[in-house]
Amino acid sequence: MEVLLRLLALLGLLLVGTGLRTVGILGANRTKRLNAAAYYVALPALVFVATYDRAISSIVSLELFVGVIVVLLGTAAVAWSVHRNRTSSARRSVAVVQSYHSNIGYLGVPLIAATFDDRVTAIASAILGFGSLVQVPLTVSILVLINGTSTRVRDQVWNLATNPVLLALLIGIVIGSFGIPVHGTIVVGLDALAALALPLALLCVGASLDLDLPDVDPFATGSVTVVKVAAMPVLAWLVFTLLAVDSDTFTAAVIMLAMPTAVSTYVFAGELGGDERFASLNVFVTTVASVASLFVLIALLG
């Protein structure tokens, strides 16, 4: 019951963000500032606190690395097959990438930090790191391929290299691996900032949505949702069972890969010829649907 109430509270915050946007309280400028606070402050603080006191060998394994890649590429292949016959390339490209591109940063790590222990959070932070290095290039490549648009590889590499969350992960891993002491006052301050990560992220996600109900394609959105919040977690469960990873790694991997579609896919769609309204709707629907799927997974994982 506690887990269900927590997930419903998260859904409530998401809807609050959408409502504040609708009534004009969270306009574009305020949403941008909230997003910056989450992206540059709260999320990096959370990732650093989760990793600064652990050696990388204690949280990352070859099985984890291989498993995440297999699940991402496997789900992308399933999505390509499911959506291959859509006549609109703009909609087809979005449907494919939103079926596997998970919200592992804004929702994944904060949700795990609020639900599981520190080691699971540390593993989730590592998944965020190398998972992003797979998801982002794959998403850009698919959008470019299907829509015939172009992007500068150098810009995408620079965006990844300067990502504050990934930088915080790298710094935390280096400090943890070399046993560099961190003053307690700093940790307490970062802990306080880290606690803001999930509520800020949910408000930003809700305020970023641009829904156009008359333009809804129930079958297309339903297909994306089923692949993302049902097929992908099942595949993750099977892959990591076969890899025989430890329970903390299993929990972190399955929950992270069960996250709803990332809001960043909406941004990528706008930049690279995708259907933006379709993308926005899918983010909303997969996020709402994930409340039920995550409840089931968390209950099964204890």
Rank of each mutant, 00 (worst) to 15 (best):
R30L: 15
G184V: 04
S93Y: 06
F278W: 08
L73T: 13
Y52K: 02
L34V: 11
L73P: 12
V291D: 10
S125V: 02
L196F: 06
Y100S: 04
T121F: 05
Y39Q: 06
I180R: 04
I127G: 08
V49C: 03
G17C: 12
N282W: 01
L107C: 11
I171R: 00
L200M: 15
S208R: 14
T162H: 12
P44N: 00
A168E: 02
V285M: 06
S99F: 04
F284C: 14
A37L: 14
A289N: 06
V165K: 02
A42W: 05
A279Q: 07
Q98D: 10
A37T: 05
D191C: 01
L14A: 11
F178Q: 08
T261C: 10
V227K: 03
V16D: 11
L160G: 14
A95D: 08
V285Y: 02
L145T: 15
L294D: 09
T75Y: 01
L297M: 09
V216M: 04
V224M: 01
L46V: 04
V66T: 11
Q135W: 05
G222E: 00
G131S: 12
N103P: 13
V49Y: 00
A269G: 08
S141V: 13
A253N: 12
D215W: 00
V23E: 14
A279K: 05
E2Q: 14
P110N: 09
L72Q: 13
Q135L: 15
V97M: 13
V41M: 05
L257D: 12
V3T: 15
G274P: 07
Y106N: 15
L111D: 11
R30M: 10
D248T: 12
L4S: 11
A113M: 03
A220V: 09
F219D: 05
D117F: 03
N282D: 13
S93E: 07
A45I: 00
S102L: 06
A192G: 13
L43K: 09
A45H: 01
Y52D: 02
I127D: 08
Y52W: 05
R21T: 13
I180V: 15
A36T: 11
S93R: 06
Y52T: 02
D118W: 00
A114R: 12
A197C: 15
V78R: 04
T87N: 07
M259L: 11
R6L: 12
A252V: 07
T287R: 10
I175L: 10
V144S: 14
A207K: 13
I186A: 08
G206R: 13
I104R: 06
N35Q: 11
L10A: 14
L133W: 08
L13E: 11
L272G: 07
F178N: 04
A253W: 08
